[in-house]
Design a binder for these strands. Sequence first.
RNA 1: GGGCGUUUAGCUCAGCUGGGAGAGCGCUACCCUUACAAGGUAGAUGUCGGGGGUUCGAUCCCCUCAACGCCCACCA
Length: 888
Amino acid sequence: MTTGTELPTTYSSKEAESKWYKIWEEGKYFKPKKGKQNKAFSIIVPPPNVTGKLHAGHALDITTQDTIIRFKRMKGFETLLLPGLDHAGIATQSVVEKMIWETEKKNRNDYGRTEFVKKIWSWKEEYGNVILDQQRAMGTSCDWDYLTFTLDPIPNLAVKKFFVDLYNEKLIYQSDYIVNWDPSLQSAISEAEVEHKDVQGAFYHINYQIKDSDEVLEVATTRPETLLGDTAVAVNPNDERFKHLIGKVAIVPLCNREVPIIGDEHVDLEKGTGCLKVTPGHDFNDFEIGKRHNLPIINILNLDGTLNHHCLEWQGMSCKEARKKIAKHLEELGILIDTKVHMHPVGHGERSGVIIEPMISKQWFVNVQAMSKNAVEMVENETTKFFPKEWENTYFAWLRNPKDWCISRQLWWGHQIPVFYCKDCNHQWASEINESQCSKCLSKNIFQDPDVLDTWFSSGLWPLSTLGWPNKEAMIEKKFDTFFPNSVLITGFDIIFFWVARMMMMSLKTHNQVPFEHVYIHAIVRDKLGRKMSKSLGNGIDPFEMIEEYGTDAFRFALASGAGYNRSINLDPDRIAGYRNFINKIWNAFRFIYPHLNAGSAIITDIQGLDHHERWILSELNTISKQMNHSLELYRYDDACSAIYTFVYDKYCSWFIELSKNILNGEDALKKSRRISVLKFIFKKILALLHPITPFITEELWSYLKEEDEGLLIIQDYPEYEAAWDFTTDQDQMNKFIEVVTAIRNLRQSVNIKPKDEVKVEIFSDNHELVVYFRNNAINFQELARVTDLKIGGKELTRPAKSIMSATAYAEIFLPLEGVIDLDDQIKRIEKELSKLVADHAKVESKIRNENFMKNAPEEVRIEVMNKDNGFREKIGSLKSNLVQFKS
RNA sequence: GGGCGUUUAGCUCAGCUGGGAGAGCGCUACCCUUACAAGGUAGAUGUCGGGGGUUCGAUCCCCUCAACGCCCACCA
C-alpha cells in the first residue's frame, strides 16, 4: 500500500460502504464455505413483508444476526445467513386493493380473482424489493442466491405437502365454528391476530318475561342488539335466587322468541345480575354453552358486520347503530331498567383495527394438541434453548394451553387451500397437485376451495422450505442436511407464538427435529423516551436517515451496544452520534499509523523481545479477545461492545499510542520498527474483533494494513485468547504507572499549570522494584505528564519544601513549585481527599475488627480486605504527615 | 383476574454464582499538545424505589408494600 495521499481527519462512511458491499457480494464472500471448524452455522432471516420498509426493529434484527454470522464465519464455520420475503396475505392484498381503488376506482371483484392476483404479483415485482436493498445497506452478509419468497414454488409445495399429510391424518379438519370475523377484511382471522382493547361501553339491564308467569329475569349485557340471536337464558344452577326457574321458558324481547332457561356453571353469580342471555352465534362462551345444551344457533349478522334478515326493523344497520336504537326502543317498552357505564375489553383486528365479530362460519383448523406438547418438551429438555431464558415462559404459556389453529382466510393473495370438491358426487379430498377430475367419480365438474391459508402457515414451514423441502433435488442443492436445524433463530418477542411456536411444532411434525438450537429474543426498539415507535406518534427512527447521517457502522454499533438480555432499547440518536465519534476515533488512530505503513511488518516474530509496554498491550488485547468471544457466544452484544470500546479508547489510544510517540520520533531504528509492528499488529486485531459489529470501516482500514498474501478481513481468523500473551506483571506495573501519571496530571490542574508547561516531580516509595520501574520509565513521565525533571527515591529522603503532593498506596508524589503556592487551597484539596479515604477505610476496618468476619469469610476475601487496609493506611499516612507539614 | 418484568448518577442503561457502586451521553474547568475539537486532560453528581428478614457482610437472596411497563384471559 502506498502512503502518498493525505487522509482527511474525518472518516467518510458512504464510499467505503457501497464499495465494500459490492466487493463482498461479487466476490461471493457471503456464500457458505467450509472452514477450519468443519461445522455449519446457519440463521434464517425472519422474512419481512413485501409491503415493508426497513424500520428500526429490522435494523436490530439484521445487526444481531449479521454480527453473529460474521463472527462465526471468521471462526471458521460454514455460515449461511438466509434471506427471504413474506407475501403477508392481508397486508399486501389491502395495499393493492387500496391502490387500485385510488387510481381506478375499481375493487377486486371488478377484476376477478385471477386478474387481481396478477395485479398483486406485478405490484410485488415492482415494489417488493425495496426492503432487500435496504437490508444490503445495513451490510447484511446474506447469501442472496438463497433468497426465497413465501409464494415461490417450493414453499408452495411444502405448504401443500404439510396440509395434505395432516388432512389425511385428520389433524386438519373443517368445522362450523365460532371464529373471529373481521368485517372489513371479510375474513376469519386467528386468535393471535386479535388485539383486546378497553372500550367504554355500558351494561344494559333488560327484563326478560318468563312465560306463564309474572316473574321477570333481569339480564345484563353489553350488547343488547345480539338479543335478536338469543336462544337461551342461563343462570348458575347453584344460585338460590334463580334455581327454581331452570327448565322454564323465557321470552326474548322484541322478537318474542321463546327460549329455555338453563343452568350452567359458567354463569358467574357475582357478575352482572347473575343472569346471562345466551347468543351462541356471536359469543365464544355462549357458543360453548350452546354446545353443552344443544341450543340452536342464530346468525344475525351479514359478512360485512351489519344486521341481517333476522333483525326485523333493524336489518341493515351496523351493530353500533342498532345498539343505540334497540336500547332506546327497550327503554320505551319499559324493560330497559338500568344502563351502567362499563369499561370492557373488545377484540380488534390487529391489522384492520375494526371490531372483531365472533361469528359462526365454516373454517379449516389444525389440531395442534399433540404437536404443541412435543414443542413444549423440546424446550423443557433444552434441545432448543432460549436466550434470555425467561422467554421460555411466554412460549410455554401459549403452547401449554393451545387452541386449535384456524388456518383459512377468505382472501385471494396466498396459498390456496389444496382441497377439492366434486359437484357431482360431493366427494372432498386434499391433493398436492392441481386436480382436474374427481378422484372418486372422475367427474370434471370439480372446484378448489377458494380460501387461502394463514400467512403463518407458510412461515411456520420456513426453516424447511427455504432449504428445499420437500423437493429432493432442491434439498441436495441447498444442502438441507448441512443447514437444518438452524443454529439460532433471532427475532423479537412479539412473534414468539405467531412464529417461533409454529416453526417448532411444524418441524417436529415433519422431521421430528427442532428447527433451531438456540432462540435469541432481542429487545424492541423504542424511542428515547421509551415509547413504542409508531406512525401516529411520528417518533419512528428511520434507519436510512441514521445511515445517511452517521454511517452504517455507527448505527450498527449503537444497536449492538444496546442488545443484551433486555426487553427494550431506547434508541437516542445522540447515542448513535456518540458511536459515530467512536468510529472516527478508530479512523484517526489509523491516521497515526498511516505514515509508517511501509516501515515495518505487522508481524510479531519475537515475543520475548518485546518491551514492557508492548507486552502490556498484548496482554490487554488478550483479555479483551477472551471477553469478546465469550460475550458474542452468549448474545451479549452489549458486553462485547463495551469491552472493545474501552480497549480502543482507554488502552490503545490513550496509553499505547501516546507511549509510542517518543519511540516513533526517536532515533533507535530497531525499537522503532518493533513498535510499529506492534502498533499495526494490535490495530489489525482490533479491526478483526470489531469487524462483525462494524464491518465497513474495519474492512476499509484492513485493506491498508493487510499483507500481500492476506485476503479480505471478512474471512480472517477471529482473535482468540492465547496463553502465551498473558503478561500479568506488566499489566500490574502499568496500572501503577497509570495511577501515578494521573495523580501528576491532577496536581498540575489543581494549580493551573498549562498542558504544555514542563514540571519537576519527585516520587518517594519504599517499594524498591517500583522505584526501579519508575526510573526506567522517566521518558514516559515526560511524554505523558510533561515531567522533565524526575527524581525517584525511598521514603527516608526529605521531601521538597515548597510543593504540592498526592499519594497512592505505593508512592508519594511531589510537585515542587517555584512561585507562591496557595497553601490553603492545597490543604483543602488534601483534606477533602483525606476525609473520603478515611470514610472508605472505616468500612474496611470495621470488617477486620469484626470477629465473625475474620472467622467466616473465605480466605481470599480476607486477604483482599487486609491488602486494602494496608493500601489505605499508606495513603492516609502519607497525606496526613504532609498535611502537618503544610500547616506548620 | 393470571403471569412476566422494571425501579441504580440529570438522561439511557450495565452490574455474571452475595465481599470497597460502573459505562455512554450530558454537565463543569482548563487546553486548537505535531492521529483525532466527531478531540485531549482533570473533575462533580448516587439514603442502588420504601419497609422487614437471612447473613460476619445485601444493589445482588427471601418476604412485603408502592409506582410503572408488557403479555395472556375475559364483549353478561
